[in-house]
């Protein structure tokens, strides 16, 4: 059971044992790495994970998805995720092109990287699934400022951690996962980006 950040009003009905996260982005944006980092952070906490990308045509810029399943208990299911508890949208240009909320569980959480939380696409998405909880963060800006490139795949994880009150993965765990995966200098920058999205995510 994960309690969402109290600002979201009610707790997401995550009475399931396994948290299913689906990430949407475009080829080249590090969506797979993002799902891997979630898994690596969860393993820092000795949880059970299965995280992988959905491989379609592997082209830069093509819409792709990645998945992360996390549980405190061992689980055996090995399918892609069709009914996520949490959806992460790394690229706002996907809104209106990809049904990012497809199969989202009742009352589930959608985290969107955008510089315009009131854009037409975001509003349309909210109207299409009024039961869902929404949060936005300008991960592109954060990444550009903190990392120096518009690579949003780490920055957006700060928002995930904040919104789930560190119930899926902890801030400290993602930092350890980042430090294990990257060299010192880029690790620092990515951690700064995560700290900022943790602080700046808007509900």
């Amino acid at each position: 059971m994960i309690l969402l950040n109290e600002k979201l009003g009610v707790a997401i009905p995550l009475t399931v044992d396994i948290i299913d996260i689906r990430l949407h982005g475009r080829g080249g944006q590090g969506v797979m790495t993002s799902s891997y980092l979630i898994a690596e952070a969860a393993l820092v906490e000795d949880k059970y994970v299965h995280a992988f990308p959905s491989f379609g045509p592997e082209r830069s810029g093509a819409p792709i998805a990645a998945f992360a399943r996390i549980s405190n208990e061992r689980f055996y299911v090995k399918t892609e995720i069709y009914e996520p508890d949490i959806v992460i949208v790394q690229d706002p240009t996907l809104l209106g092109q990809v049904d990012v909320a497809a199969g989202l569980k009742e009352g589930g959480l959608v985290i969107i990287n955008t510089d315009d939380p009131s854009s037409e696409e975001v509003v349309k998405l909210r109207e299409s699934r009024p039961d869902a909880k929404y949060a936005t963060v300008d991960a592109t800006k954060i990444a550009a400022e903190e990392i120096g490139i518009k690579q949003t795949n780490t920055a957006i994880l700060g928002a995930l951690i904040k919104l789930t009150s560190e119930g899926v993965i902890k801030l400290d765990s993602i930092k350890k996962a980042i430090m294990a995966r990257f060299r010192e200098e880029p690790a620092k920058k990515n951690i700064n980006a995560i700290n900022r999205s943790f602080a700046e995510v808007e509900i």
Partner: peptide, 12 residues
């Protein structure tokens, strides 16, 4: 090992 669902998937 199953292609992708294991080969490209992270587990502990």
């Amino acid at each position: 090992l199953d292609g992708f669902i294991l080969s490209h998937a992270i587990e502990g």
